[in-house]
């Protein structure tokens, strides 16, 4: 019962805030809406009993990635954009229409294929972090290592890109 109420509350909140990201012409407000969406999604993960993923979502998305967005936007100090959206009535109508068609198709497809999915084993207990860790360091160990290398490359790359043409630390 609680999880049902929570699901409706959180899904409405997440979708409304996501719409805020889309429609607010000021990028900083978009970023702040994005934070709220992320928090809503992380609570949704808690509701799905994926506690570790929810916590990581809070740390990584809400705590780091979106802070970067907000920070960069404030650093630029952009004024309210006169032209936040792309031009052209016909093309935007086309975009909205195709997005709606895609949503319709996805939800229709998932409804139709619901019967195909066999129910898993009876719900025992929620997946613990220990199980996750054991799997991560055995079956997925190679992927985990590659991920580490990717992060290293990305860190070096980001520093290099943003230091081009001077930057704040230029001698």
């Amino acid at each position: 019962m609680t999880s049902t109420v929570l699901f409706y509350l959180l899904s409405v909140v997440s979708i409304v805030f996501a719409l805020g990201v889309l429609f607010n012409p000021n990028p900083i407000f978009s970023a702040l809406y994005l934070v709220l969406t992320m928090i809503g999604m992380s609570l949704m993960f808690f509701n799905l009993e994926a506690y570790f993923i929810g916590g990581v979502q809070l740390i990584v998305y809400a705590g780091a990635v979106t802070v970067l967005f907000v920070m960069v936007l404030m650093l630029f100090d952009l004024k309210k954009e006169k032209q936040a959206f792309t031009k052209g009535l016909f093309s935007s109508l086309l975009k909205y229409f195709s997005a709606g068609a895609l949503l319709f198709m996805i939800s229709g497809a998932s409804l139709m294929s619901m019967g195909l999915m066999t129910e898993g084993a009876e719900k025992a207990e929620p997946i613990t972090t220990k199980q996750l860790a054991a799997l991560l360091f055995t079956d997925y160990f190679f992927a985990f290592e590659v991920l580490g290398i990717i992060l290293l490359v990305v860190a070096i790359g980001a520093v290099t890109i943003s230091r081009i043409r001077g930057g704040t630390h230029a001698k």
Binding site: S30, L48, A84, F85, L102, S110
Partner: peptide, 24 residues
């Protein structure tokens, strides 16, 4: 849950299509 996921995905897609600001 799949429907909520699809809806947020579509909103994200529209954001990519409609906005001009790179960060958005």
């Amino acid at each position: 849950y799949l429907f909520v996921g699809a809806a947020i995905f579509i909103i994200g897609m529209l954001t990519v299509l409609m906005r001009k600001n790179v960060i958005v």
